[in-house]
Simulated scan of single mutants.
Amino acid sequence: MAEQHTPRSLIVTLYGAYGRERPGPFAVAELIRLLGALDVDAPSVRSSVSRLKRRGLLVPERTASGAAGYALSADARQLLDDGDRRIFAGSPADPGEGWVLAVFSVPEAERAKRHLLRSRLARLGFGTAAPGVWIAPARLAEETRHTLLRLRLDAYVDLFRAEHLGFAPTAEAVGRWWDLPAIAKQHEEFLGLHEPVLRVWEERGDPAARPRDAYRDYLTALDLWRRLPYADPGLPAELLPQGWPGARSAAVFTALHGLLRDPGAAFVRA
């Protein structure tokens, strides 16, 4: 298992990819089998499931056969549904859509909440326009609202729709608001790992004949890709540097999704 794939992250990715279409929960034994295909041992699966349960993302539920299992909580389903709109967005934001601003103030006595708020806005893909003023493409407003309400941080934040009126060109300002070289590096890392995998599948064909391999390659690609639309929140292409690798990495993921997602489901159902 590659370093960037943690057992907890892979479990969330598994539920996101295949757990929502199931009529019931994953049995613990199923989770151990499915994560075992990704070189995660049983104790790591059990401890990760326990942590996800404590975080309120998984809830214990018996399968139809009476086996112990875990289903997604309502909050987890909302998180995954919000994530789908990013992961499978397909195109960057249009400059005409404008921006959403998050303006916050947290009392000094509640510094932990200030840290949580900053870290969560960063994880949602916001850039920093000024101290206490964070900015993102306007299409992220609803997901931001869901997140702040879920974390009970809404009392500290005002959200605004905004248009950039100057004085620097918007493309120049975007370079201050986000660390674009760091985001580009993440796209390049994804391409370095998964573009060769796509070439192999395109050459050998018929992933339905190799469901375990299709499952493994799809889930590891999805696990890494699903973080990228949060680091890079779909900034308008016109505002990004020449040669930006985001479109290429999105095309690679889209192709892998189309080739491997359904064949991988056969292994999950086995």
Rank of each mutant, 00 (worst) to 15 (best):
L165S: 10
H164W: 15
T170L: 15
R152L: 09
W178L: 10
L148I: 02
V157F: 05
R161T: 04
K185S: 14
Y156D: 06
A162K: 03
L153K: 03
I183V: 15
A171M: 11
L148T: 01
E172R: 13
E172P: 02
W178K: 11
W177Y: 11
L159N: 06
A168W: 11
Y156F: 11
L180A: 12
E143N: 02
T170K: 07
R150P: 00
T147Q: 02
R152I: 06
D158I: 04
Y156M: 04
W178Y: 15
W177K: 09
H146Q: 02
T144V: 01
E142I: 00
A184Y: 10
E143A: 08
F160L: 08
L153M: 06
I183W: 06
D154R: 03
L151F: 05
R176Q: 12
T147N: 00
E172H: 12
E163F: 07
R161E: 05
V174W: 09
A171R: 15
F160H: 12
A184E: 14
A168V: 13
A162P: 04
F167R: 09
P169L: 11
Y156N: 05
R152Q: 09
G166F: 10
L180P: 12
R152H: 08
I183R: 11
F160I: 04
A173P: 00
R145P: 00
L165Y: 08
L153W: 01
H146G: 02
G175W: 14
T170E: 15
W178C: 11
L153H: 03
P181M: 12
L149I: 04
V174S: 12
F167P: 10
A182I: 12
P181Q: 15
L165H: 09
V174I: 14
A171Q: 15
F160T: 05
V157D: 05
V157Q: 05
F160Q: 06
A184V: 13
E172Q: 15
A171C: 09
R150G: 04
L149S: 04
L153A: 02
R176D: 08
R150V: 00
T144L: 02
H146D: 04
D158H: 09
F167M: 09
H146E: 01
R161H: 07
H146L: 01
V174F: 11
R150W: 00
T170W: 08
H164D: 12
P181K: 13
R150D: 03
D179H: 07
W178T: 14
R145N: 01
L153P: 04
P181W: 13
F167G: 10
L149E: 07
L159V: 06
E142V: 03
Y156I: 03
A162L: 05
D158E: 08
G166K: 11
